[in-house]
Design a protein around this nucleic acid. Structure first.
Lengths: 186, 186
DNA sequence: TGGGTCATGTAACCTGTTACATGATTAG
DNA sequence: CTAATCATGTAACAGGTTACATGACCCA
């Protein structure tokens, strides 16, 4: 997956490994994160597959860099991946795993637990005003309007997810509050 | 994460590795999936940590089995994990990764793409009637009402997620349809 | 007679995390 | 003076996937 993400970014234009890391961890962090160590490892594989090529550039006031560019083979592979009918994403949600077993803790503790969750497990923890500003900035920075639209789609998903998460937390809290009133003895 | 999930299940009662696999892949599949190979590997680690112990039971008409049970140390570790203020789940969404780069495909293809997504990427692909029935069955099968409630919470999350996913897909399709009408030339 | 269930695993591989390592320049 | 930025990685480990392997019993 990361392989094809990197390929997609290099299809937008040439970059260094450092640039790729920056784009993932700044602009795309609402759907993917990647460590530097993993990026450089995948880059080696991509190069071995003939999907990208590296051009070494010497610099004076900065460390030397490798400028990566996508090859024709790489573009083919990118399109193959995009059009391929991929399997559904595997379901594995650490937050729900813990929630499931939280029945072992007291109801009061769990009301607090859900209150914290709705702040902590959000895609955009910065608050909606801040997120709106970042969204506008990013939209203006992309020259290609179609690409800007698809970025917005992924970002919309994040906003809708966060809204749903808050609603779910409030729903769980409400059910726990009902229990409280029904049953005086905890 | 899987380690503590297994610990949580063994806290409910003794089980074999096979039972654990069945519970994960049947009743808990809406938030976690695990391969047999991984389960048996983790069981060895849990035993090495002294959190569970195994009792070998010989059988005649069935293969011998190892009945796993949680130790006092294991219960402590389970509670430590439950109460620990865990980090937010890492954000890594393969579906959004592909969506982001789908700008490279035609608008028509992408309308179809989103139409498929809302069926394919759901937590409960069986349809809501079927899911409702399974939810009731499961709820009735758990003798402990608190545990049944927390199972329902995780299952509610799945239903709300699926609803949100469908809304998001429809939202994206709508925006693509608007583009169609604005711009006659694709 | 063929497929599902019970029951155990191993081996190789791929993906992601954590910690470490270097080092100059530049902005506050 | 200190922190951030640019720029590259390695090593070890943890977690998850895929493929393989065995074998009896039971039900249709």
């Amino acid at each position: 997956m990361l392989k094809h993400g990197i390929l997609g970014l290099l299809n937008y234009g040439n970059m260094t490994g450092y640039d790729i890391k920056t784009v993932f961890n700044d602009s795309l962090r609402h759907f993917w994160q990647a460590q530097t160590s993993q990026i450089y490892r995948e880059l080696r594989v991509l190069e071995k597959n003939g999907w990208i090529k590296a051009t070494h550039v010497e610099q004076e006031s900065r460390p030397d860099k490798n400028i990566l560019s996508i090859t024709e083979e790489g573009k083919k592979e990118l399109m193959r991946w995009l059009e391929e009918d991929s399997a559904a994403s595997p379901i594995r949600n650490p937050m729900l795993m813990k929630t499931f077993f939280r029945g072992e803790c007291s109801r009061e503790e769990n009301i607090q637990y859900f209150q914290k969750l709705q702040e902590k497990e959000t895609v955009f923890p910065e608050g909606s005003e801040n997120t709106d500003r970042k969204r506008q900035e990013y939209g203006n920075n992309i020259d290609n309007p179609v690409r800007a639209l698809y970025w917005k789609f992924t970002s919309d998903f994040g906003l809708m997810y966060d809204k749903m998460l808050r609603e779910w937390c409030m729903h769980c809290i409400k059910e726990l509050e009902v229990l409280k009133n029904e049953n005086i003895t905890d």
